[in-house]
Structure formats: C-alpha cells, structure tokens
Design a protein around this nucleic acid. Structure first.
Length: 668
DNA sequence: AGCACGCCGACT
DNA sequence: GTCGGCGTGCTC
C-alpha cells in the first residue's frame, strides 16, 4: 500500500475516542498537516468528537460522505509506541481501540477547551532530597535495576523481599537513574488514593511532589497533569492502573509496586491487568519494568523461573527490624465468648499490648456491622432486590442502614420483617468491622479504638485522619478491612490479630489460597517493624491448611510449589489460557435465548473447551441477569481469535450486553 | 458511546 | 389521528 493517498484530496484515518467498531476517514483541509499521532477534533454526527490521526487513508468512500477534520488540538502528538500499545491492548482484551484511546486521553476533560484559571506554581520543591544509605543487599539489587535503566532496554525484574526489607529505597535508585538520564518514571500503586504514605515518602526521597494520577482527580488537575506528562515536565508519576496509558514524552522505567495485588485488574469497561500490560508497554517503549512484591503472584514466579524475568532478592528486614512471630489460634479448641469473635488467646495478647502502651491491629475483611440480617420468626434473609447478594447492616456514619456492597443501594434499617411483617424479630448474623469495634470496646473499655475501612471516596478525608491518629499513637486498637494491608507503616504497631483467617478460602476460587496467603502475609507485615518483635495471631478453624501452615513457618516457596503443581495438574493458567464471556440482560429470558444460540454455535476446535452457560457468580447485578461461559484453550491457541469468531456467528441484540474477560482472576 | 430513526400501543 | 416507548443501526 502506498503511503500517499491516491485520492484527489488527501484523506486521513482517524481513531475516535469512543467505542466505534472501526476508524473513520476524514478529509485533510488544504495546507494542513496532520501526521500520525496528531490529536484532532472532528465533526461526528451532529456533535464533535476527538481522535488521533493514524495516517493517510486510501479508504474508498464517496468524497461526498466525508467531512474535513477541524483544527488539530494544541497538544503534543501521541508517539508511535503509545499508538502501538493502544492497538495491542484493544486486540488483546477484545475491546474497541477507541475505548483504549479514551484511557490514553485521560477522559473527556483533557481535550475539552480549558477554562481560564489561576496558574499554580509548577514545581513544588521541598527540602532537598533525603536519601537513606543502602544495605549491601539493597545496593546489589539497585545496581542491577540502574544498569537496565542506563541501557534503555526492555527487561522485567522481580524485586522480591519481605515487608520492611527496603524495596522502595531500592527501586528509587532506578527512578533516580531514569530522571538523571532526562527521562520520566512511573510508579504504579494498587490504590493510590489510599496510599498517601508512600507518596509522601517518594516526595521526601526526591525532594519534589510527584505528579499523581487516579480516578479521583478534578478535571482541571487532570488536564494539567496530562499535559505535564505529555510535555515531559512531570518527571515522576505515581498513579493507579490508568496511569499506564498516559502519553509520556520519554518514559525511562515503570515500577509496579505490590505487583500481586488484585486491584491491578480492571473489571469493567476495557478489562485488563495493569501489571501484565505494564510489561507490554515496557517492551514497546524499550525500557525496564520492575515488579515489586513480598508475595509475588504465581504468574510472576513462573516467568522468573522461565528466565523471562530477572530476579533480585532482598533477604531480610532492613536495619534492626525482625519478622513478627506468627501464631495460629485454633478456633475449634478455644472457648469463644458468646456472640463474640475475639478468642481468649487474642484477648490476652491485646491486653498485654495495651499494658505496654503499644498498638494493636485487628483485621477483618468485612465492612459494616453485620453481613447478614435475618428474621428470627420466619427465617427471611434481607437480600438486595438488584443483585444476588445479602444486604449488609451499617450503623456508623449516622444512619442505621442496610446497604448492598455491589450496587450501592441503601435503605433505612427496617422496623419489621419484609416478609412476615412482625416487629422486633430481626437478628444481625456474623461480624463486620463495626461490630468488632463494639466487642473490643466492651472488652477494653479504656482503650482508644478506631475503624478503618474503604467505604467510599467521600470518606477519604476521614481515612487520612485515622492514619494520622494511628501514626501519632492516639489509637490503641485499630480495626480494619484489607485497606490496612496496603503498605501503611505504623511504628507503634506490635500486634496483629486476624479475626477470620479462613474468610478468603471459601468459594473454591482458583486463586483463593494464593490471595489469602498474600493478604495475610501483608497484614502480618504491619506488625513490629523497628525494634520491637511483632506478634501475629491468626484465628482459623483449619490450622492444618497449607496456607496457614506456610504462613506460620514463613515458607512462601513451599506454598508456591504446591500451587504450581496444582495448576499444572488441572491444566490451569499459566499452563492453559482462560477467558470468560458474560452475557447480561434486564430480561432474563432474552439473555437465556442468546446464551442458548451461542451454546449451539460453539466452533469445534480440538484445543478449545467451552463450559456453560451457567449463572455468573453474581447471577444478578444492578438489575441485570448474567450468564457466563468459560473458555479454556491450550497455551499456544489464540483465544481472542476463537472468541471473536464465535461471537460473530450469533446476532446479539443491543439489549444483551457481552463482556469478555481474557485471563480472568476470579471464577469458581 | 450518543443519537436519530422507525415501528407499535395509549390518549386527546 | 398524534405522542412517545425503546429496539436497531449509523457515525467519515
């Protein structure tokens, strides 16, 4: 194909940042240049659209149908490596390239004309950079990362070390090397809005405030940051998974912190795993990628063993810090208090801790007061009318409510049973963090107790207050959900109690054991970091379980060995490929009809197995009924090609939505 | 994704 | 006879 358009007036191919099925062709007004990568606004229907020029077009369409592009936007063009990345991600995830482009453009606000506003001071410089001396082990690890940055080549390195071993200080050396070479650095965090501590640490380390990127930014900040990234003015970007798609002027290194963390998986819209996509972007930008974790994912461990990833190991806690002792509390043998969840063993440990003036953390991965409400008279259980889920009782925050954790609908706590209408018959079943706080309050009336849970973004300020109070030693017992596991460092914390160690093991999920181990190991790592030997108590009814045994003995490798053999035996990833295809419709009969047609049209292929349709784990979500297929193929099979071909065989009406998840994380 | 178009039931 | 429900299809 000739790069020069054969038509009389030059035409360009434009990728629009919407979910259109294909690119569109526009006329290029005379005398205007719009090379590949130029961001343009274009007429689209009766509205205006934004897009990126992919190049000249030879598309054979009647010129009368074509409209000219409007003026190019006054923004830096997207580089080839980013355009390639966008196309690659769209292809891999089976989503529209326009939707992936939208992520690169950082949402509508970036392109819309800026409102005039006061200019903020660009570079906020603090006290000069504060660099800590590295241990010999850190130095060896850092040198290897720095080498890769200097060579400006693609390499993936697992930075592996227990909590407190100094992974952050180590990858900071790589960031510094990238910035010294005039390039940018990206640090990805699982949940950046919650992780102010690490951002503060990085700011101190480098002597300036890094640029932040996450979904909670205001439109104006978003636009400013996007531009600063594209112009190369933002040298260090700390962001959530979406920061991976930004148009870096000259990226030098990507760090994926807590690479095993499940929140790197985007579950709606374009469904992708940010850690895996970071590796792809690194390859396209020809730069090193650092995956940092104390409990690496199985996938990463296997890539390391296959020599696809390099491995640098930080063997021990830095300085005088020692790993905490982990005790398993066998709940079958404990005399549990009536209506309570804190065992006598854990109570004693908390009491000792209080007497010494040290802090405790009680971990329970359940928000609210009680996960289930039932009627003692007729047995009715309060379920969400929109979702396949029980309503969760919440008491804190002023209102006594029943809340659905999946769609967010809330109602005032009822006076009577929905079913039998009797009054005063409702009972709270099971504990949430709020109820645990009540129990701890009764047991330790003089202790200062606080709850930390990621209820919503609105409570972010409250969350930061709690963190600050905990750091300042104004809290004796902190009760928290999994957000307390996210890398906070509380110097006075010496005791961690896991209330229900078995919670994550239910459901028979492929990754249940792995995730439970990672979460509990991370929670355990909160305890005793500086000069005090920390202690961890894990309450469990199955202390013999491999996860519990290996936690207690710090034998991560043995658990990994067991899990790898399991995956191999059952031909599960990474020894095979998986994808889910989920149909959803407001009318259950309509969804079922399409599922039936799809089931009847599964192409026969020796290396592909399709299971289903079966009700999805959330059979109803936000009022839509969901059915799911599971596609399993041999490792070498192009699973996307198979699914695209299969879906093309059945006409699917607008009312039934299809979503494909390549490499799903959670399924039973 | 928007948004317009068009084909069927309810009401002035 | 018109208003408006949403199912279908197009956007250069």
């Amino acid at each position: 194909m000739s790069p020069v358009s054969s038509h009389k007036n030059p035409r360009v191919e434009v990728l629009i940042h919407q979910a259109l099925p294909k690119t569109l062709t526009y006329l290029l007004p005379e005398g205007q240049a719009a090379p590949r990568g130029t961001l343009v606004s274009v007429p689209l229907g009766k509205k205006k659209g934004f897009g990126v020029v992919l190049g000249l077009s030879n598309e054979n369409i009647d010129e009368a149908k074509l409209k000219p592009i409007e003026a190019p936007l006054e923004l830096p063009p997207l580089k080839n490596a980013l355009l390639d990345f966008i196309m690659w991600v769209a292809e891999y995830t089976l989503s529209s390239p326009g939707n992936v482009l939208a992520m690169a453009l950082g949402g509508q606000s970036v392109l819309a004309a800026p409102k005039p506003r006061k200019k903020k001071e660009e570079t906020e410089t603090l006290i000069s950079p504060e660099k800590h001396p590295l241990s010999p082990a850190q130095e060896v690890a850092a040198n290897q990362l720095v080498e890769d940055v200097k060579k400006h080549h693609f390499a993936v390195t697992l930075l592996d070390g227990v909590t407190g071993s100094g992974k952050t200080e180590t990858y900071c050396e790589a960031i510094e090397a990238a910035m010294a070479a005039g390039r940018q650095a990206l640090v990805m965090l699982p949940e950046i809005a919650l992780t102010t501590q690490l951002v503060g640490r990085l700011a101190k380390r480098f002597g300036f405030q890094p640029a932040l990127w996450h979904s909670g930014l205001t439109p104006a900040t978003r636009r400013d940051t996007w531009k600063a990234v594209a112009e190369g003015k933002a040298k260090l970007v700390v962001g959530a998974r979406s920061a991976l798609f930004l148009p870096y002027a000259d990226l030098g290194v990507i760090v994926v912190d807590e690479e095993h963390d499940g929140s790197y998986k985007q579950e709606d819209g374009v469904i992708y795993h940010a850690r895996d996509m970071a590796v792809v972007r690194g390859k396209m930008e020809k730069i090193p990628v650092v995956l940092s974790s104390a409990t690496p994912s199985l996938e990463t461990v296997l890539n390391m063993r296959a020599k696809k990833y390099q491995h640098v190991h930080l063997p021990e806690r830095h300085g005088q810090a020692v790993l905490p002792r982990i005790h398993l509390v066998d709940l079958r043998k404990e005399q549990m208090p009536r209506g309570g969840w804190i065992s006598p063993t854990l109570q004693n440990a908390i009491r000792e801790c209080l007497q010494r003036g040290e802090q405790s953390l009680l971990f329970l991965n359940r928000r609210g007061y009680a996960p289930l409400t039932l009627c003692r008279s007729c047995g009715y259980r309060f379920a969400c009318p929109q979702c396949t889920a029980w309503l969760v009782e919440h008491r804190d925050g002023g209102k006594h409510r029943l809340v659905c954790h999946h769609c967010g609908t809330a109602e005032l706590y009822p006076r009577s049973c929905r079913e039998c209408k009797k009054e005063n018959t409702l009972a709270a079943c099971g504990p949430g963090v709020e109820r645990l706080k009540e129990e701890a309050g009764k047991l330790f009336p003089n202790a200062r107790i606080a709850v930390m849970a990621s209820d919503t973004q609105e409570h972010l300020a409250a969350l930061h207050q709690t963190i600050a109070a905990m750091e300042a030693g104004q809290i004796d017992i902190l009760i928290g959900t999994q957000i307390v596991a996210k890398g906070y460092h509380f110097p006075g914390l010496t005791l961690v109690g896991v209330i229900d160690g078995d919670l994550g093991l239910q459901g028979g999920d492929l990754r249940a054991a792995e995730h439970t181990f990672q979460l509990l190991a991370q929670v355990a790592g909160r305890s005793g970091r500086v000069d005090v030997h920390g202690r961890v108590y894990i309450q469990t009814v199955q202390p013999q379980h491999a996860v519990m045994q290996n936690l207690a003995q710090y034998d991560r490798d043995r658990l990994v060995e067991t899990l790898i053999r399991e995956r191999e035996k059952f031909a599960m990833p990474p020894y095979a490929r998986l994808a889910t295809v989920t149909l959803s419709a407001t009318d259950p009969a309509a969804g079922k009809e399409i599922a039936k047609k799809l089931a009847a049209n599964i192409p026969l292929q020796a290396d592909v197995e399709v299971l289903g349709p079966a009700p999805a784990p959330m059979a109803m979500l936000r009022g839509r009924f969901r059915l799911r297929f599971l596609v399993k193929t041999a490792k070498a099979t192009k699973i996307q090609e198979f699914i695209r071909n299969w879906l093309s065989l059945v006409k699917i009406p607008h009312t039934t939505r299809v979503s494909v998840d390549i490499d799903p994380q959670n399924f039973s």
